[in-house]
């Protein structure tokens, strides 16, 4: 079995039909994401906008992280964005359709978060 990397974990999650785009966002660092040509977004500018504003999000997220902030959701037109915090400055972010079965996708988001935490722990 090929060795698991951050990118391979994200690509695995992106294979889900309703995960339209995904990234591992890190404050003040370049985010890790599969190649945008693998994304299923009708409007790719949403991902670019999200990517470019991540540091602004982290400024808010950091203020709440000590209070146990774990997940953030917001609706964006025909999409919904899910943030699963990995630490105060790292988050798993995915874009899904607004009529997706979010609960089922959350389970696989959680599995991805666990795999990323394990990769961070083992220093891969």
């Amino acid at each position: 079995m090929p060795e698991e990397t951050m990118l391979s974990v994200l690509e695995d999650l992106l294979k889900e039909e309703d995960i339209l785009a995904v990234m591992l966002a890190r404050k003040n660092e370049i985010s890790v994401s599969p190649s945008p040509d693998k994304f299923k977004l009708r409007d790719p500018s949403i991902f670019a906008l999200l990517q470019s504003t991540m540091n602004d999000f982290f400024a808010v997220i950091e203020k709440f992280s000590s209070q146990g902030l774990d997940k953030v959701y917001f609706e964006l037109g025909n999409y919904e964005v899910m943030f699963f915090l990995i630490s105060g400055d790292t988050a798993l972010v995915s874009i899904i359709p607004n009529l997706a079965n979010k609960g089922l996708l959350e389970v696989e988001m959680e599995n991805t978060r666990l795999r990323i935490k394990e990769l961070i722990r083992t220093g891969v």
């Binding site: 997940k71 079965n101 979010k102 609960g103 089922l104 959350e106 389970v107 988001m109 959680e110």
Partner: peptide, 13 residues
């Protein structure tokens, strides 16, 4: 039920 799974989401853990 799948409805229970959808309701729980990641809380199924």
């Amino acid at each position: 039920c799948a409805a229970i799974l959808e309701t729980l989401g990641s809380n199924v853990f």
